[in-house]
Nucleic acid binder design. Structure first.
Lengths: 205, 205
DNA sequence: GTCTATATCCCGATAGAC
DNA sequence: GTCTATCGGGATATAGAC
């Protein structure tokens, strides 16, 4: 009965994909929670409920696992960037993406920015898919930054790279995490404050 | 000959203090460069030029070493805070401290902010001297924040804690590090941009 | 107190049965 | 592909001679 074979194979593959998705998801949560270095492969396997050796059948090493987790986030970011209304003002586009990143950050779905000399960073630049995704995001945001600068919406003293890096950094703003840890404010409130600090600064306008 | 004894003892103690200072300094540099988790005690000992066992005669463990390194920068920050001219405007006081922190950060003397669930953070809150130094800094900055808020210099939408945490986060702004890594801008230029992004935001004024 | 040498443990990665 | 059991390396930490 070929048809039943097809169904069984498809079912198996779905299970495999689901398991891989679970692994990457757990890795992403742990990386967001404690960072790449402090995360252990045993923890990831334990959270998924499988043995460590099984995990190594899916990913050849810890760094590839981290790259897969980061790629998932980057792909989501790409989708968000592409879903921003094209007719919005450039600055509002940037703000919309920043808001999404902060929401993901507070929800525990956004790994912290890798340090310049981190092992994670080298793993990311070695992964071709991650590089491509990141440069695509950078180019799209860069175009918005240029447009916003020309329309006078951005501080003209800041070069394009400074704005771009600042946006990357604010997406994982530790200040938001500290405020959330106090437990006194809602996520929505914290996000508004963080966006205000990012685009309008601490000074009164 | 008591006097020669006194001299010799004092000399020995000076050497010991100098060695401890060298150890803490090396630990601080390495923590700033690669983070607490990635830093190994072997590296610290190697940089100082002593055996690892000798280092363990000075500090009972890696976490105590890290706490000593953090305490040193906290003490420096306290000195900077106290040295700010008392007659300056509150916002300018905050800006002066932020400028100092960014300079230290770019010079490689400022360890990165410990994550909320980091092992480093638990080591810091366990150390009494670190706690006291940190609360002292927080109180002094908090007073300036309150004064700046009353005089209308700060965004009234931002609560005191949000401003304080944002200042802590901006002291180690990763965006500044990324700009420095490009190698195209001077430290002074980067600091001006970072201060502008912190206090005035990305938007044009 | 400083050294060499070692103990002990943990983590990433693997072997091999099923 | 999944498991149990283990290897090998590197990290923290210590023992003991000097």
């Amino acid at each position: 009965m070929p048809s039943s074979d097809v169904v069984r194979i498809s079912f198996k593959e779905r299970m495999l994909q689901a398991r891989e998705e679970a692994i990457v998801s757990a890795a992403g949560r742990l990386m967001a929670e404690k960072g790449f270095e402090a995360m252990t492969v045993d923890e990831v396997a334990a959270q998924v409920g499988i043995a460590k050796a099984s995990l190594y059948k899916h990913f050849p090493g810890k760094e590839d696992l981290a790259a897969a987790a980061m790629l998932r986030v980057l792909r989501r970011a790409q989708a968000v960037v592409q879903a921003v209304p094209a007719d919005a003002a450039p600055l509002d586009k940037l703000r919309a993406v920043a808001r999404w990143a902060l929401e993901a950050h507070l929800a525990g779905d956004m790994p912290t920015l890798p340090g310049p000399n981190s092992a994670l960073r080298t793993a990311l630049v070695r992964d071709k898919a991650c590089r491509e995704s990141l440069t695509d995001i950078g180019e799209r945001l860069g175009a918005w930054i240029d447009a916003a600068g020309k329309s006078g919406a951005l501080d003209p003293a800041l070069p394009r790279a400074a704005v771009l890096y600042t946006l990357y950094a604010r997406a994982c703003d530790p200040a938001a995490g500290f405020l959330k840890a106090e437990g006194r404010y809602s996520d929505a409130q914290i996000i508004e404050w963080a966006l205000g600090a990012c685009f309008d600064g601490l000074r009164a306008r």
